[in-house]
């Protein structure tokens, strides 16, 4: 049996995730949808048929949020701010987690009588593995588009210059940073290890925990940049002049 209340709530929920709507906008669209459904059912359609036709008449999920975003700049910024806040929080949590991880792994390695430099390298490799796992799960979650993020990325890939500016450059920067760290580590660390500064577990932990916060800060900045870029104003899909 078709449940109108549930289907309507799902449809509204999808729209809400785009962050372009105020609550009153959604109420208005719901009221419109119900008028349309009633009208269609008067013409002999079943409730389920009427629902599908009515939702497709109201507009597709890609264009409708864009049209509303042009008017609801406040709602759009609230949504972006939420994303930024989530990013900052995630960064803080990750930062502490990575510090603990670096401390734990170096402590264990050093207790086996390994020097601080190999301990740092071991700690870093554990972190790289975990980071890869985290990125893979992030990709998996986003690819299922549960947060409406991938549709934004898809739009960003519409034209070649956008791919370069919003996607390729942050990724390339990230790659360069990783490469620099990998190159700098073996050169810098033995020099420092010779001095007294890097002789303790604490120092090894410090170096081991510095790389990832930087990398995560850069990748988060890249994501925030992509999400907060102005909407594509070239598309005249709606009733916007």
């Amino acid at each position: 049996m078709f449940d109108l209340g549930k289907s309507t709530a799902e449809w509204l929920g999808d729209l809400r995730q785009s962050g372009s709507f105020e609550d009153s906008d959604l109420e208005e669209l719901e009221s419109h949808l119900r008028d349309e459904i009633e009208q269609l059912m008067d013409h002999g359609l079943s409730l389920k048929e009427a629902f599908w036709i009515a939702t497709s008449r109201v507009g597709n999920r890609e264009e409708l949020p864009d049209e509303y975003a042009k008017t609801n700049t406040q709602a759009v910024w609230r949504h972006r701010f939420l994303w930024m806040a989530v990013g900052i929080l995630a960064y803080l949590v990750l930062n502490h987690f990575i510090w603990l991880l670096a401390y734990g792994t170096t402590l264990v390695t050093v207790s086996f009588g390994v020097g601080s430099y190999p301990a740092t390298i071991f700690s870093l490799s554990v972190q790289v593995l975990l980071a890869c796992g985290a990125l893979a799960s992030a990709y998996f979650i986003l690819s299922r588009d549960r947060f409406g993020v991938t549709s934004r990325f898809r739009k960003a890939r519409r034209s070649r210059p956008r791919i370069i500016v919003f996607y390729a450059i942050p990724v390339a920067l990230l790659g360069i940073l990783i490469a620099l760290w990998c190159a700098a580590g073996p050169i810098l660390l033995p020099l420092l290890a010779d001095s007294e500064r890097l002789s303790t577990t604490w120092e090894a932990t410090y170096w081991g925990s510095q790389a990832f916060p930087i990398l995560f800060a850069v990748s988060l900045a890249g994501i925030a940049f992509v999400l907060s870029r102005p909407k594509n104003s070239e598309s005249h899909v709606g009733l916007e002049r």
Binding site: D25, H32, E36
Partner: peptide, 29 residues
């Protein structure tokens, strides 16, 4: 209200011009 405006546009144009219903509201706002 919105739904009737859409209907009216449809009538006035004899079905030649049809808006995606949801696009009307940003114009109104």
């Amino acid at each position: 209200y919105g739904y009737l405006i859409i209907k009216r546009v449809r009538e006035l144009s004899g079905g030649q011009m049809e808006w995606a219903d949801g696009m009307l509201y940003p114009v109104l706002h």
